[in-house]
Structure formats: C-alpha cells, structure tokens
Design a protein around this nucleic acid. Structure first.
Lengths: 209, 209
DNA sequence: CGAATTGCCTAACAGTTGTAGGAAATCTAG
DNA sequence: CTAGATTTCCTACAACTGTTAGGCAATTCG
C-alpha cells in the first residue's frame, strides 16, 4: 500500500490546530508545510489546493463541533438542554477560536451549475453543516414548538448564540461591566423565555383544534 | 501643492467598493492597484501596507454604517426605533456584503504595550467602533432601561442583530421556509419584548424606591 | 520661469501558490 | 527474497503578491 507518512486527515487536523494557534487566515500551505516538517509541494498530494484545504478544515471542524454539542445535550430537555447546547458551542469557540472561525467563514456554494462537480470537501462541509442544523432542531423540538415555528425558533436561537459568541470572541464585551459570563446567562434566560412562549403558542393551538 | 491624483480616501473608498464586488478577502494591494489603473507600488504612497489598508477600510465602513443607522433612527423611540435601527444595519449588510464583512473582521488590539504606537487606521477604527456602540446604546436607552441593565441590553440586541445578519448573509436561511424577511420581523418582535420587559423591571424598581 | 512638492513609475527581492517530473521508501505478490 | 506497484516526498520552476528603493515627470506657487 505504498510508503506511510502523512495522510489527508492528518494534514487537515494539523491545519485546524494551526488555526487555533495563529488564526484561520494565517493557515497557508507553506506555513502548514513548515509546521509539518515537509516541503510545500508535498501537501498537494493530500489536498488539491488552498481553497480545498480551507473547506476541508471547515468540514472537519463542523464535525468536531457537532460531536461536542451532541455529547453535551445527550440528556435533558427544554431549558437544561438549551443551556447545555449553548454552553457547548461557547466552550468550543473559546477553547478553539481558530476552529470556530473556520465554521463561520463559509459561504454556501453559489447555486452552482447543475452539472458542476462538487468537490469532496464541499460535500463534506454541507453534510457536517446539516448535522449541526439537525442538532439545533432537536433542541428546539424538545420545547414542543409547533412545526410551523420550528424554523423560526432555530433561526432565533442560532442567531443569538452565534452572534453573542462572535462578538465576545472579537473582544467587544471585554471592556465593560458586567462580565460576559453574567450577560451570557441572562441572554440564555431570555432565549429560553422566547422558546417557551413559542411552545405555549403551540399548546394553545392544539387546544383549539 | 504638487500633482493631483489619488489620495488616501479615494484609495480606501475604492477598496470598499471592491470588497462588495469581490469579497473582503479578495481586496489585495495588487488587485486594488489594477482596479485603479495604477501600479501596485503606487499605493504605498497612500497606505502603509496591506494591514493598514484593511484596517482603514474597516474604519471607513464603520463610519458609513454609523451614518446609515443614525439617519434611520433620527426620529422615534422604543419599538419603532429598534426596527428602524435594525433594518438600517440589515439593509446595509445586504446592499454591501463586502463592507459588512469588513466590520466583523476586526480584532481588538491585543492589549498592546503602553508605549506601542497606535497607527492612525487603528485609532480611526476604534473611534468609529465607539460611534456605533453609542448608537446602539441610544436605542436601548429609548426603552427606558435601567443603567444597570444597559450593557446587557446592548449585548443582547447586538448579538441577535449581528448573528442573524451574518447567518442570513452566509446563505444559511436561503434553503428553508418561511422567508428570511418573515423570521427577521419575528425576531425583532421578540427582541422588542425582551427590551420592554427590561424596561418594566426598571420602572418597577423605581416604584419601590 | 524656477523650485518645491507630489504622484507615479521601473527595478528588484522575498514569500506564496501551484505544476511537472523524478527519486526513494514501503508494501504485496510470487 | 525479489520484483513490481504504490505512494510519499523532493527539487526545479513559473506566476503572482507584498514591499522597498530610487528616479522621472507633472503640477502648483512664488
């Protein structure tokens, strides 16, 4: 089976680590090659270029994130589930800012030509993205929200969590009181309130029926 | 006063336009120079390098954004003000995605050495950032929220608005019903509810006093 | 008109991306 | 154990980006 050495997964994992260390943008082919003790053309045996590398890192990291959240939310429902889910994402982002950055720097493929080839890394990112979306949906469903409101609930929850974490990570909350931890808890309380009200709406509609 | 031609502002404005056209990351010195019909070393008369260019674009765009929101919220208070403010930001982001990207790609200067020189562009970005923060605070204050809760309210509002716009711009909401416009309106309703409840808390506290 | 000012240029170098082709290391079949 | 296939990694090279240095030319002001 040929000579052993690097493989695609090892390269991508190293790139993810490097992103946490230096920032996602600083992960270039040549920096990564130096870091792996290898010449840069070598990496082209494992990845097809810089774009492919970045997309592959995004997919890899989205899977790690889904692993983290799905572990955290294994038990519980409603408020407990929401807090566990949101905390898992926030912890992930603070422990691995470069990885978290990678999850955000992805645009949806621009409605490509039907015949266009979809690279493996893009397909993997789409799949991993859907996995995360399904987890968010599971959190919302545990509140018992009506199907009509599910999409809205997911968007509300995701927007708030992602927005808060992004701003926190950018340092926006570092220069004023109260602590970011305190307002994070409050924000989750408010979000829990909104989701609970949506669920109540669903229950009321059921009564009428 | 010498020969007329480009000046720093013109270069930065062109870079902002280019960001909307090609994406913020695609705005490189050489691309910008070509776009301006000039050789790349020429730009070094106006900017001090690629980092300076990006930071300057961020500052420039943060000022444009503050102009847009402050115009929109000139009149009104409470819910009307919130909607006008949030819509102004969202419209800005959708009309100028590259510019909006520029506002987010900025990290706070890493607690630099007290003696470290602060480049003009960084100082400008900080000032413009504060201008936007003050506008957000004005929206919150119009609800009559207690001073203790102001910071939390600003963080909640900013997180939701920024998070929603970021995800929408990334195309996350493009593949499911209902329309993003519909859920945006709902999200602002919920946010208005949260801010209103915070204001009620302030009013109650006043009664007790 | 002369001089100062300023804008833009060419030349050149370092670093990065990406391609092409070859040499060495390892695994597997006989 | 040997031969072949496979795969890794390398050197060499071309194109492009960022950046510095130094010089020519256009414009404005006295």
């Amino acid at each position: 089976m040929g000579r052993p050495g690097l493989n695609r997964t090892a390269v991508i994992a190293a790139a993810a680590d490097l992103a946490d260390e230096l920032g996602f943008d600083a992960v270039t082919i040549s920096v990564l090659a130096r870091h792996l003790g290898v010449r840069s053309p070598t990496l082209y045996s494992h990845i097809s270029g810089a774009t492919d590398l970045r997309t592959a890192v995004t997919a890899y990291v989205l899977d790690e994130l889904a692993d983290a959240t799905s572990t955290a939310i294994a038990a519980g429902e409603g408020r407990d589930l929401l807090v566990a889910y949101a905390d898992a994402i926030r912890d992930f982002a603070r422990r691995s800012p470069g990885r978290y950055d990678a999850t955000t720097r992805q645009r949806v493929p621009p409605a490509s030509d039907p015949a266009a080839e979809i690279p493996d890394s893009v397909a993997a990112a789409i799949t991993a993205g859907r996995r995360n979306a399904d987890l968010a949906l599971a959190v919302v469903r545990s509140y018992g929200i009506a199907q009509t409101d599910e999409t809205y609930a997911v968007r509300l929850m995701s927007s708030l969590i992602h927005g808060y974490i992004t701003l926190e990570l950018a340092g926006t909350f570092a220069h004023s009181e109260p602590s970011s931890d305190a307002t994070w808890g409050e924000a989750l309380d408010d979000l829990d309130g909104s989701l609970t009200r949506l669920a109540a709406r669903a229950a009321a509609a059921n009564m009428v029926r």
